[in-house]
Design a protein around this nucleic acid. Structure first.
Length: 370
RNA sequence: GGGUAGAUGGCAGAGUGGUCAAUUGCACCAGACUGUAAAUCUGGCCUCUUCGGAGUUCGGGGGUUCGAAUCCCUCUCUACCCA
């Protein structure tokens, strides 16, 4: 087996554990910074590591288009290419079927993309998605799935996506050859528990080394996702890592952990950091706002990240006003440090069997500020 | 002293009789961002508003006209050219 999962502590549904991969061990629940194009935007791998990251993401669709998965393979694989020695998880491109919907024609055979870069065609079949990820050499690969928007969709469309996702998972599993790489399946089904259950049942029967919940935070209300998570997480095998894809805000992460999720990823800390929003234990702050112009305090006083240890809100405000690239870099770093610290504290709370109290305390502080 | 061109909302700069509270850019203010087509995008930016509108604006003053940022007179100021 390419990875092993050790469940070490539970607190109601919440779980603390460890995933051992060829490139290192991951403590769960874990937040995984997103490095779509072979870089966590604006940060060097040393900074990502210093923020506390144990594993990062790469993306099949984007890296296949540019610079090309064979090129990455020939240059030693993604770890070497991007100088990240820790574990890497690659997403399959299934999310791009959703986010680049206007550029995609989807059939049972696969997803035909019109490159968002130059319009050239790229067909992502389940087999091709597996090949690309094997070329990239990630520790964890995701099966190609169909991720339907939950905005103005019908049950029949979601059902069709579920069925296609299961068929594609079979093809991915059959095509997978790389022994050192684990392949995770993805459960779709939107907010419909019956569809989720059907999908999970079929996929669990195929015995993947890990399972993801896909198709959340794609247009539905956050509360709807929160309500659906406990039951959906419970559909997944206890002895295997459970990954909630693309989620989320700090409060969403805590809800996910409480539901029994082990892995999360989201662009929010880095994207919002680039856009001048900092996450703190007292809620988000917008560094572009005028009220920070003369504020000598750090972004977050209890934070030990490089940004908070060395720079004031006033300086960050100035950097964003002047459009200096250090601003996005420093806030991306801080936001990752915040997310990763939150998860570290969550892990400890689970081991101490006080996760519910921890979650309540965090929420109360965020709410008090807003 | 003579001549020419100008003076428009914080700045730059369109508009040259009605469709102009006045294009656009910048600056400024606020918001959004959930498996990254995003260092991006959206909204606001004279005053008041029951968000339907209402009231005052285009250097100052006077005039023509049903109607003026736009035409005429005059004053003030600015830039350039000639003495």
């Amino acid at each position: 087996m390419s990875i092993t999962f050790h469940l070490e502590a539970t607190d109601h549904a919440a779980r603390a554990g460890r995933i051992v991969t060829p490139h290192g061990t991951i403590d769960t629940p874990v937040f995984m910074p997103v490095g779509t194009q072979g870089t966590v935007k604006g940060l060097t791998p040393e900074m990502v590591r210093a923020a506390g990251a144990q594993i990062i993401l790469g993306n099949t669709y984007h890296l296949a288009l540019r610079p090309g998965d064979e090129l990455v393979r020939d240059l030693g694989g993604l770890h070497t290419f991007m100088n990240w020695s820790g574990p890497i998880l690659t997403d399959s491109g299934g999310f791009q079927v959703f986010s680049l919907a206007t550029q995609v024609k989807i059939t049972d055979h696969g997803a035909k993309f019109k490159s968002h870069i130059d319009g050239s065609p790229l067909e992502l079949t389940p087999e091709r998605a597996v090949e690309i990820q094997e070329n990239l050499g990630s520790d964890i690969a995701m099966v190609l799935d169909e991720c339907p928007s939950l905005k103005e969709t019908t049950r029949e469309k979601v059902r069709a996506a579920v069925q296609r996702t299961v068929r594609w998972a079979e093809r991915c599993q059959r095509h997978h050859t790389r022994a050192s790489q684990a392949q995770f399946a993805i459960v779709q089904g939107g907010l419909d528990f019956e569809l989720r259950a059907e999908c999970a049942k079929d996929l669990v029967a195929m015995d993947f080394p890990g399972y993801a919940l896909g198709g959340f935070s794609v247009g539905e209300a956050p509360e709807a996702m929160h309500a659906a998570l406990p039951a959906c997480a419970a559909l997944l095998p206890e002895a295997k890592p459970r990954y909630l894809m693309g989620v989320g805000r700090p409060e969403d992460l805590l809800v996910g952990v409480a539901a029994g999720i082990d892995m999360f990823d989201c662009v929010m800390p880095t994207r919002n950091g680039r856009n001048a929003l900092a996450f703190t234990a007292d809620g988000p702050i917008r560094l572009r706002n005028a009220k920070h112009r003369r504020d000598p305090a750090p972004v977050e006083s209890d934070c030990d990240c490089y940004c908070c240890a060395n720079y004031s809100r006033a300086y960050l405000h100035h950097l964003f006003a002047a459009e200096e690239m250090l601003g996005p870099t420093l806030l991306s770093l801080h936001n990752l440090a915040f997310y990763l610290r939150l998860m570290r504290e969550a892990r400890q709370a689970i081991r101490d069997e006080r996760f519910a109290a921890f979650q309540a305390t965090c929420l109360a502080r965020w709410k008090a500020a807003s």
